[in-house]
Write a protein that binds this DNA or RNA. Structure first.
Lengths: 241, 241
DNA sequence: ACCTGAACACCGTTCAAGT
DNA sequence: ACCTGAACACCGTTCAAGT
């Protein structure tokens, strides 16, 4: 598994074997193949053919590695629509892509959500594309960040919901203390067919939407509709001056 | 610190010293006084005057304890408005209270977001109040759960944002690669005054809103505006039949 | 400066022994 | 059934020793 099976001697190698880049790449590869639970300092070190303590010559903590991963992963979020589409269509596509990426990277949510952007160049580039798109579409500068934050908040929350068990809202034996809610849950399941058969679908066919997908869709559409109203109200007001 | 300093003998006590209730209460008290980081099985056991392994006679894992805590904490969320106010006002107040509670209980978010509701009676009661309010206001049964999920998603994401460092979007040295975004961030900070002086405010005065509060406000208002439109469109359509 | 290897200070959890 | 106390199988991190 390690890159080189010949053991290294005890002292400093002639040229450094590690860099932050290599650590990040190995971490992403490890997550890809064995998941976030397998991302330990020892496993990462083994993947790199190095002892765990060697990592600390290049990063201060495991959290630093999570930050490196986050900046890589954010490159997968599709911001392309901001260059060609109207702002609301672009925001919609961005949000959906953003959620897809974080559904595959749930443990990054608590990191990304509270992480200063200062040392994440790719993340910053993403925000720049979004901010440019909104500004060009006539959004006032003072609203741009709040809009981004609101969409991101919905995205992170929805990503969690998407990895929840399918039957998360089933009241089980307690349905008698929540009859109205239980009926609503039953009705929801009915509409969707409780087990969308994604395993058997054609590889290119779009995955039948899960309950979580539908809820996100409802939320995102409503949020964007609200944004459109707010922007319109602003333009009406300034036109009246 | 422990409840009783006399050491217990080695065998089974005459009457059980632990219950799930007592464990949950001690956990909440521990979190209250020392924070989530201090909630370890050993610390909890010490608080209860018991050895750590004794806890496993009453819960299967630490996660089970988190679930007990979650059901307690959810009792603090204010659903009262659903009994008196229009649905959109009620949803607004519910969401704000919900966020306040989870800002103080961030580590519960990954638990609550993916947790089946089946064994959380108080949580289920909360959903029942919300579902009843929405249904009474004319929301179709099939929309109720999606609406709740969308609001919750925004709430969880916004709670994370609220505990992020104040300057989370400051581009630092990288501002030249994101000029438009950097200008928007600077403009946002300007509007708010970068350090709201909450420490010095009068105890009863409302806390001056943080950037995160404003972003949540924008998001929630927009989401609710979108919901109003959707509900109106539905009623127009059924009225035309 | 940058590696190794041993050690540290924790975790949550298991389990035999005891009553 | 329900406790104790020792032990287990991990964590992330530190640090002296080596080149």
């Amino acid at each position: 598994m390690s890159q080189d099976d010949r053991a290294r001697g005890r002292g400093r190698p002639l040229s450094p074997v590690l860099t932050q880049r290599k650590i990040a790449s190995a971490a992403v590869a490890l997550i890809q193949s064995r998941g976030y639970r397998a991302l330990t300092m020892s496993a990462l070190a083994e993947q790199l053919g190095v002892s765990a303590s060697a990592l600390y010559n290049h990063v201060g903590s495991k959290r630093d590695i999570m930050i490196l991963i986050q900046d890589r992963v954010n490159q997968d979020i599709d911001c392309g629509a901001f260059e060609s589409e109207p702002w609301d269509v672009a925001l919609d596509q961005w949000a959906r892509s953003y959620r897809d990426v974080y559904i595959r990277n749930i443990p990054l949510i608590p990191v990304m959500a509270v992480l200063p952007v200062a040392n994440s160049p790719h993340t910053l580039r993403m925000y720049e594309k979004v901010a440019t798109g909104l500004t060009r579409a006539g959004w006032p500068e003072s609203w741009v960040v709040n809009t981004i934050v609101a969409v991101e908040s919905l995205v992170f929350g929805s990503a969690y919901d998407a990895v929840a068990p399918e039957n998360i809202f089933d009241p089980g034996e307690l349905s008698d203390i929540a009859p109205v809610f239980s009926a609503a849950v039953a009705h929801r399941d009915l509409l969707l067919g409780s087990v969308p058969d994604n395993a058997a679908r054609a590889p290119e066919a779009p995955r039948t939407p899960s309950p979580a997908d539908v809820a996100f869709d409802v939320g995102l559409r409503s949020l964007l509709a609200g944004f459109r109203l707010a922007l319109q109200a602003l333009h009406d007001r300034t036109a009246a001056d």
